[in-house]
């Protein structure tokens, strides 16, 4: 089935991309239908199911091709570049939200309090407002709320993520030494730490909602806090799923010390998620 051109593997026509397009269309269109028209969520769900099927099919094909030795080093390099630039795009996605956070803290808040060229903004619209952070604005949108302290759960979560970075590297060493036990154990610990992280974060959210009255709708602070940590949490979940798949594939013995792009891609992603968390910890929790 493989068609090799001067060494570079060119795949046969494939229906998976089209399936993916249909899936994404249904997932997002269905979500919009749900939000706008309060329609049935079934459209959206079916979209995600199709997407999941597409991933299985597509990655299954890739794994099969890879296993049959169709990919040379150049193909491998293409995959690596693809993953690296994809991660860069993710970095920029987070940059938009960090940008919003910095803008609100450094500019919008002081301006609402009368700084810079906003003397009249303050005097006329919000005479009683004193700029501060964390804040839900002059309208105290969402009501009084409590701040999320840095040195409780978040600090523990930082430790968890940092150690998971270590375990995944340790697993990589194992893979390179062809020590499958170390590989599997390392991966297992990483996935477990990731799951623990997500669990603790869910706990933290619960605490925020029920005890601190800190919600997504709590003005600027709530918006930035939940959007940043939420998208991060989502990425941790995705990364953990990727690692879980890699773990299962390791158990099946898919990887060789020299040929394990999937492992590396997941590991890079994991490190990226790690670094984003450090940014979050510093700017969302610590310096709040």
């Amino acid at each position: 089935m493989s068609e090799s051109h001067g060494g570079y593997y060119l795949p046969q026509p494939s229906y998976w991309p089209l399936v993916g397009s249909v899936g994404l269309f249904l997932a997002l269109g269905g979500f919009a239908h749900f939000l706008v028209d309060h329609g049935s969520p079934l459209w959206m769900i079916s979209g995600f199911v199709i997407l999941a099927i597409m991933m299985f099919g597509w990655f299954g094909t890739v794994i099969h091709e890879s296993g049959s030795g169709a990919y040379n080093a150049q193909v491998d390099r293409s995959f690596r570049m693809g993953m690296a630039w994809f991660i860069f795009s993710e970095v920029m996605f987070f940059a938009a939200f960090f940008g919003a956070l910095f803008y609100m803290r450094i500019f919008a808040e002081p301006w609402l309090g009368g700084a810079s060229n906003n003397f009249f903004t303050h005097q006329w619209l919000y005479p009683d407002y004193v700029a501060h952070w964390p804040s839900n604005g002059p309208g105290t949108v969402g009501g009084k709320f409590g701040q999320m302290p840095a040195w409780g759960l978040p600090a523990i979560n930082t430790l968890i993520l940092l150690s998971s970075g270590v375990t995944v590297t340790w697993a990589h060493w194992g893979l390179k030494k062809n020590n499958r036990g170390q590989l599997i154990l390392g991966l297992f610990m990483t996935v477990a730490l990731g799951a623990l992280f997500v669990g603790l974060q869910a706990f933290e959210y619960h605490h925020a909602y029920t005890e601190l009255n800190l919600k997504l709708s709590t003005g600027a602070y709530g918006s930035t806090f939940f959007m940043l940590t939420g998208f991060h949490g989502l990425h941790v979940t995705i990364g953990a799923i990727m690692l879980l798949v890699v773990l299962l594939r390791s158990v099946k013995g898919h990887f060789s010390p020299h040929h394990h792009f999937a492992f590396e891609a997941a590991a890079w992603y994991w490190h990226f998620v790690d670094v984003v968390w450090l940014g979050l910890f510093i700017f969302v929790y610590w310096l709040a």
């Binding site: 803008y103 609402l112 619209l125 804040s135 839900n136 604005g137 309208g139 600027a220 939940f226």
Partner: peptide
Amino acid sequence: GTSFFNAAGGGD
């Protein structure tokens, strides 16, 4: 219900 672009909530 976020307030990114809403001054009352501290956005802009």
